[in-house]
Amino acid sequence: MTSTVSLTVNGKAVSAEVEPRTLLVQLLREILGLTGTHVGCDTSQCGACVVHVNGTSLKSCTMLAVQAEGADVTTIEGLADGDTLHPMQQAFHENHGLQCGFCTPGMIMSAIDLAKRNPDPSEKEIREWLEGNLCRCTGYHNIVKSIKAGAQAMNA
């Protein structure tokens, strides 16, 4: 049994046939082919799948696709304006905020939500905000630096 879900993804109206159990991340990755959003665990712990739903960061493995009916979803692919990177993407690049890149989309999506709520977060605030995002490569040092710089650039 499938049903149709219609939503906006990265500014484009889309609709798809999904099973009741299909997760939003599966809709994005497997049906819409937006493979920038990653799956790193099966317990909603790692944060590699964070996207924005109606402007708020959300783990797309914690939401059923049918729950996204009518929603406005932004993924990592929808951030840049043509060739111009979003300031948070640029900050991750300039501060070596990524190594293998697998956790990076979720980190960036999560960081943007923080910067919208808190234009000048402290190191402590950034570290606490990131408790839902795991990185195994960087030790977080440069991620924290990236987010600080990115938040400042976003709010400059």
């Binding site: 493979t35 920038g36 959003t37 993924t75 692919e77 990177l85 690049h93 070596h96 990076t104």
Partner: peptide, 19 residues
């Protein structure tokens, strides 16, 4: 030198095996 591989990773255009 800032990493050249970053661009695809921060843009969601990496190509991992599950992709």
């Amino acid at each position: 030198v800032l990493r050249r591989e970053d661009r695809r990773f921060i843009s969601g255009r990496g190509n991992y095996v599950d992709d």
